[in-house]
Write a protein that binds this DNA or RNA. Structure first.
Length: 114
DNA sequence: ACGTTGACCTATA
DNA sequence: GTATAGGCCAACG
């Protein structure tokens, strides 16, 4: 795969349980601010990646579970999040601002990767 | 090769 | 606060 995808997967794996991030934040961290859609495409392939990529911890900027349809079932993503202590109501992450995990802030730089 | 689609985001009104 | 437009670029038919 391209390095871009691998980088996306690396960042997603850094998201701690019970926290969530966004496509745009990851794209921005990888230097592709305008290409947040590519992060979504990377997630589409995330299910086939080894090791496991916690794609359920990645939601859109509004905290909406827009990618839930790509999981096994419609409630799989929500179930996974709730099993980690993340409240999800009406396909939306509760206290998204508080649970938001920004790689730009948490990792500070690319030194945490590789 | 071309048009459409898509797990998105920002800007403007 | 919502609505609309534009940009982004890989994958698919």
């Amino acid at each position: 795969m391209n390095d871009f995808y691998q980088q996306v997967y690396q960042v997603v794996r850094q998201i701690p349980p019970g926290r969530v991030s966004s496509y745009g934040a990851i794209a921005s961290y990888l230097g592709a601010r305008g290409s947040s859609r590519m992060v979504g495409w990377a997630m589409s392939n995330a299910g086939r990646q080894i090791p496991y990529v916690p794609a359920h911890r990645v939601v859109n900027r509004n905290g909406l579970l827009t990618g839930k349809h790509h999981f096994g079932s419609e409630i799989a993503m929500q179930e996974l999040l709730e099993s980690e202590g993340v409240e999800v109501i009406d396909d939306r992450v509760v206290d998204f601002d508080r649970l938001f995990w920004d790689p730009l802030v948490e990792l500070e730089d690319a030194g945490q990767l590789f």
